[in-house]
């Protein structure tokens, strides 16, 4: 399994208090019970802390928008983490 997705899954399990939650690329906010706007912000806060990254304003709400799912979120994380390591390497 994709390492970032696995770490995301850990964060997800803690925020949603669901030790058995399994993330798939196709999952989106509407598929998950309790994924309301409050929990969404809590997820964003936890992900920022866990991965030590900072989302841009439009990225914060992006995950909840139509057409977005866990797969696109993982790619966003990869992009941000990749950018970070390039900056660190430069």
């Amino acid at each position: 399994m994709n390492e970032i997705r696995e770490r995301l899954q850990q964060v997800f399990r803690q925020v949603f208090d669901d030790p058995d939650a399994v993330l798939t690329d196709e999952m989106s906010a509407k598929d998950v019970d309790g994924w309301d706007s409050l929990q969404h912000i809590n997820l964003i806060i936890a992900v920022e802390k866990h991965f030590a990254i900072r989302f841009a304003t439009d990225e914060i709400s992006g995950l909840k928008e139509p057409g977005q799912n866990i797969g696109s979120f993982v790619r966003l994380l990869e992009r941000k983490l990749g950018m970070q390591s390039r900056t660190a390497g430069a």
Partner: peptide, 15 residues
């Protein structure tokens, strides 16, 4: 942290 104000009307950064 204006991002969280703009997106969620939070008064300050989460921490």
């Amino acid at each position: 942290d204006p991002r969280f104000y703009l997106e969620a009307k939070m008064p300050c950064g989460p921490e």
